[in-house]
């Protein structure tokens, strides 16, 4: 009975010679080499900064999504949630402008509004999934539609725009930064590092993996399964709020078109990174690599004329599938 093939426990695999670990990194390196060969500007400071900054939204969300998926859940609502929070943040700031003036107070108010809205939206998802025991897929499919409609309604079918004066005050949140590194990149890095530590080095991360692996076993091991699950959704909601805080200053507007398909990009990034879609094993750094892979594909396709733009989606699809195939352990069938 002990005589089946020796398989190692996930997360403790040998660091080298293991495609599960190297797969996404190899894909990333190949993309960087291809990009550099195709266009000399690819490795320029400006281009690298652009790609990192624009990947930050999905990246921050993907870190939260990693925990949700590791714990055996799923959240399809994050894209609409981002649009809704962006709309709400803009409306709150516009409304507070006459009273508070165009200074720091309004900006802080906007930030708090986005974070609170994110927490609340995440909590609602988590509550419906854990306490009401509805399938995560169904709950978040429902809230996806709800938030998308709400933002359309708030914007009257059009676009919610930040007051012009505020826009200038808020812009540094996206375009500004420290030592030539913009805030979205810094935030993304900080969120990713914290996420990696939480996943790898805290009881919460271990519980997520245990629940995703077998929630009955977790329950019999005195793990408060409902609470941990709820927390993964609340955490994701909070991170959607964080992402939105940096999204709003970029264009100063939100509409029904904001955040479309972000959920799928985030989920794809998480899976490319080696987290198991059915739960039980997750790694945050993998999701970060996944996000960068997705960001670079779009960037490279824009920087070259090699491929018809009609085929962009196909190229992305092929690379996603390849990245996942690379991670599979040797044999197929058995």
């Amino acid at each position: 009975m002990s005589t089946t093939t020796e398989q190692r426990a996930p997360g403790r695999a040998r660091p080298w010679m293991d495609l599960r670990v190297l797969g996404p990194i190899i894909a990333l390196i190949v993309l960087i080499v291809v990009g550099a060969l195709m266009n000399p500007n690819f490795l320029s400071y400006a281009n690298i900064t652009n790609v990192l900054a624009r990947s930050a939204f999905i990246g921050i969300i993907a870190v939260g999504m990693t925990f949700v998926i590791t714990a055996g859940g799923l959240d399809l609502s994050v894209g609409s949630m981002a649009a809704f929070i962006a709309g709400l943040m803009i409306m709150v700031m516009n409304a507070a402008l006459p009273g508070l003036g165009g200074g720091l107070a309004v900006i802080l108010l906007g930030i708090v509004a986005a974070l609170v809205a994110g927490l609340a939206a995440g909590w609602i998802n988590g509550f419906l999934i854990t306490t009401m025991r509805i399938e995560a897929f169904i709950v978040t499919l429902g809230t996806m539609g709800i938030y998308r409609s709400l933002v359309t309604w708030l914007a009257d079918g059009g676009t919610l725009s930040l007051d012009f004066g505020l826009r200038t005050a808020l812009q540094p949140l996206y375009y500004g930064g420290l030592f030539g590194v913009s805030w979205p990149i810094i935030t993304f890095a900080v969120v990713a590092i914290i996420g990696e530590i939480v996943m790898r080095r805290t009881a919460f991360g271990r519980y997520c993996a245990a629940i995703g692996s077998n929630d009955t076993v977790a329950r019999y091991s005195s793990v408060n399964v409902g609470r941990i699950r709820l927390l993964t959704y609340v955490g994701l909601g909070l991170l959607v709020g964080v992402a939105t805080i940096m999204y709003v200053p970029r264009l100063g507007s939100a509409s029904a078109a904001t955040g479309v398909l972000w959920e799928l990009e985030a989920i794809a990034a998480v899976i490319i990174g080696g987290t198991m879609l059915k739960g039980g094993f997750g790694r945050v750094w993998g999701s970060v690599v996944g996000v960068l892979i997705l960001g670079l594909i779009g960037n490279i396709l824009n920087l070259t004329d090699a491929v018809s733009p009609y085929l962009n989606g196909a190229i992305q699809g092929v690379i996603i599938v390849l990245a996942v195939i690379l991670q599979r352990e040797g044999k197929a069938g058995t």
């Binding site: 359309t152 009257d156 079918g157 676009t159 509409s255 029904a256 078109a257």
Partner: peptide, 12 residues
């Protein structure tokens, strides 16, 4: 439906 700016204006 009003899924982008122009369509929003058209709905209006």
């Amino acid at each position: 439906a009003a899924t982008h700016g122009w369509a929003g204006g058209m709905n209006f």
